[in-house]
Every structure is written in structure tokens, then in C-alpha cells.
Amino acid sequence: CGFHLREQANVPDALRTVYLEIADPGSRLHRDLPGALERAGAKVLEAPAPEAATLRIPVSSLGPEPLSVGSTARVREYTMRYRVEFDAVDAAGAVVIQRQQIELSRDYTFDETQALGVAAQEEELRRQLERDMVQAILRRIEAAGRH
């Protein structure tokens, strides 16, 4: 039915050496994305350099939002929503990847009588969304490499 194993997809040549400029430097995205980029054939620099392209992530918001409220006016379900906007420009400043947005979310129930593990559950969901976001951004970058 036409399926074949995916070929090696790489980062576009313009982004071979890249500097990652990100809104909140402490986040896991800032720690995991360089590793993924390196596995896709890019060299990630610690600081901006004239010959390096820049992958810019100015908007990155991750947090719970109420999804549904029960008849006792209490939140029954939350959504952990992760929204990122990013673009990429090469060393000369020409746009390699148009500014675009990726939004991922995971719903989870919230039963206040079982509220013990709320923080631990949210922490787990954040981690999963951050792993998925790295893959989603990488797919967009590799797709730009293919064309």
C-alpha cells in the first residue's frame, strides 16, 4: 500500500549551525530541543554567532486551563495546554521557516476529594507535552529541510 520506511530527514542546510533563542531559558524545551536538533544533523551553539542561523521561540506558554465545570460549580476536568510560536532565520537574516504556531494539549480529570496527586499528575503531563513538542517542532524543521 505504498508505505516505505522513512528516509533520513535532516535539518535544512541553512540551519546546519544554529543558535536557539528562547523565551524562558529554564524550560525543558530549551534543554531537550538542542539534543533533538543535533540528532537531526545540526550543530547547536551556546551563544549567537555571525555565521549561525537563529531558531527563535518567542512565545512558549504551558499551563493548566479549566476544561469543564461540574454542577457543583467546581472544575471537573483541566486541559494542560502547550502553545509555542517559532520561526527560523539564517545567518544573513533571511527567513528559513515562516513564523508558525503549534498547540498541544492533554485533558485530565480533577476530583478534589482525590486532590493529593494533583501537582505530581500535572508535572507528568508537562513532561509528556514537552517531549511531544520537541518532536512536533522537529517535524516542522525537517519538513522545511525536505523542500
Binding site: R106, D107, Y108, T109, Q114, A115, L116, G117, A119, A120, Q121, E124, L125, Q128
Partner: peptide, 23 residues
């Protein structure tokens, strides 16, 4: 004792985790 452990709402990512309880 149960300090901060509760069952996690079953969801697609739950298929690939090492513990179905948080905490």
C-alpha cells in the same frame, strides 16, 4: 501511607508510563 499518590486519569500517554499512580 498515601501522601501524594492518586490514580492518573487514563489517557493515551498512560499507555507508555512506568506507573499508573502519580507520586
Amino acid at each position: 501511607p498515601l501522601f501524594d499518590t492518586q490514580p492518573v486519569s487514563f489517557d493515551y500517554p498512560q499507555l507508555f508510563t512506568t506507573n499508573r499512580f502519580t507520586g
